[in-house]
Structure formats: C-alpha cells, structure tokens
C-alpha cells in the first residue's frame, strides 16, 4: 500500500535526534534560504549543510530523488519566465525572436538555489522524522491533541482517498465516462467522479466521530503517551544556537536592506 509519508527508517544519528531539533533545523533552513542574498550562498547552504546532514542520516540518495522532481519544474519555469522575458536586460543567448537576458538568468539561478534549500529542508525533515513522533513532541510542548489528531489522521487518510479516487475513475470509465477528449468533455467528466468521492467519504464521518468518542477522545483529563521520545542533553543547546544564528542573520539582512 502506498504511503503518504516519505519517512525512511534508518539507524542513524539524524534519526535519533529529537523531532523538535529536526523541526528547528528545517525552519532555520527555510528562514535562512529566504534571507540569504546573491547567487552562491544557497547552493553552498545545500552542499555544506543539508547534504552532510542527509549523509549523517544515510538518506542522501532518497533526498536527491525526492528533491529532483519538485525542483526541476521550478528551474524550468524560472529560466523560461525570468530568463527569456526579463524586461530590458542584456541578451546573452538568442534563439530566433527570443533571447536569454543576463539579469534574468542570474535572478533565475539565485532563485533556483533558494528553492533548492526550501524544498530540501522540508524533505530532510520528512525523510528522517516520523510524523507521529513530531506531533508527539509538539503536543508534549502544548500543541492541542485535537490539532495533532487532525494532522495525523489527514496523513493517514489521504492515501486511502487517492486509492478511492482511482477506483471511482476506473468504475466510471468502464461505464463509458470519457476522461479524454476536448476540454468540455473532460470538464463534464468531473462531477460524476467528484460526487461519489465526496458523498461516500462524508457519510463515513459520523461513524468515525462515534469511534473516536468511544475511545475517550473528548476527555479533559491529562493525557499520557505510549511513544517515548529521547533527547540528547546537548540538543536543547543546539536548538537555541540555531535559532539565535538565524535571528542574527535575519537582523543583519534587515539592517543591510534598510541602509
């Protein structure tokens, strides 16, 4: 059965980190990627920060395999949209009536680097952290158990729905519904597919709510947890340091921009 999570179990130092430490790494990576200026820094950040972390977690290949299909459409769009259509700009390569502009290509390269880090940071988290462990860490820090339920249930229900959508599509196609052809014909196929999917799933909601209540979900007592999260004594320090460094970076960037 397909799974909605990318989690790759490994016996590694990265995997053993407390989920909050990994979440902090990701969030700091995202913030840094957005504020880092210029052409190279984000590529360096990816090569010298994210890749070594992935190597530590024995997930370099899965990371690259996961990053690539999301990254390349961005790269393609950036180079076509910003490279070819940069208003004004100095032409460097001319293809018939169009030409790549130097400013556009530089911008596209810089942005592609940023997006690489943005995507990579989140994928590193998803590859090395079980979502339930992450939610467990967050509820232990005060996140509502109801929000945690919503997130975890969504993660588990989505693949079931994708399967359901495929079944319904196959069933309707076998009854002669056309999902090919011109735009109008394809648009007309939408409601017969969508209706059964949404109706059948909404009708289940009532029973699912009863099942949840029958397990004491509505109780206001203090909750306990079966999952036990371990934390190295130095992890708190690392998190504080990461947050501090990111804050300094953002501050420096703001000051520079204001000048």
């Amino acid at each position: 059965m397909s799974s909605f999570t990318l989690y790759q179990p490994r016996d590694s130092g990265l995997h053993r980190l407390h989920p909050l430490t990994k979440l902090t790494l990701t969030l700091c990576g995202v913030a840094t990627a957005v504020v880092l200026p210029g052409f190279w820094p984000n590529y360096l950040l990816f090569a010298l920060f994210l890749l070594p972390l992935a190597a530590w977690g024995q997930i370099v290949c899965p990371l690259l395999r996961a990053v690539w299909p999301i990254w390349w459409p961005f790269v393609l769009s950036l180079f076509l949209v910003q490279g070819l259509f940069w208003p004004g700009g100095t032409p460097i390569v001319t293809l018939g009536p169009l030409s790549f502009k130097q400013e556009g290509v530089l911008f596209a390269t810089a942005m592609a680097g940023r997006i690489l880090v943005l995507i990579g940071s989140f994928l590193l988290l998803s590859l090395a952290t079980r979502p339930d462990a992450l939610m467990n860490a967050l509820t232990a820090r005060g996140l509502s158990h109801k929000l945690a339920y919503i997130i975890l249930a969504a993660i588990q229900i989505v693949p079931r729905f994708q399967a359901k959508a495929e079944t319904i599509t196959a069933a309707q196609q076998s009854r002669g519904l056309e999902t090919q052809g011109n735009l109008l014909r394809r648009a007309r196929a939408l409601l017969p597919l969508l209706g059964p999917l949404i109706l059948s799933s909404l009708m289940d909601v009532e029973e699912r709510a009863i099942a949840l209540e029958a397990r004491g979900f509505g109780r206001r007592t203090l909750r306990t947890s079966l999952i036990l999260l371990s934390e190295q004594p130095w992890e708190k320090g690392v998190r504080a340091l990461l947050l501090l460094a990111t804050a300094v970076l953002i501050l420096a960037r703001t000051v520079l921009a204001l000048r």
């Binding site: 109801k146 919503i150 969504a154 989505v158 994708q162 999917l197 909404l202 699912r208 709510a209 949840l212």
Partner: peptide, 17 residues
C-alpha cells in the same frame, strides 16, 4: 467531534480532487 473528524477527510478530498 464531527467537525474534527470531517477536517482530515476534507484535507484528503482536497488532495484527491
């Protein structure tokens, strides 16, 4: 509780549709 249960289902609908 009905709302809480409907939300993940709605998220799955978002993805599937």
């Amino acid at each position: 509780t009905l709302t809480l249960v409907m939300i993940p289902v709605a998220i799955a609908i978002n993805v599937a549709v």
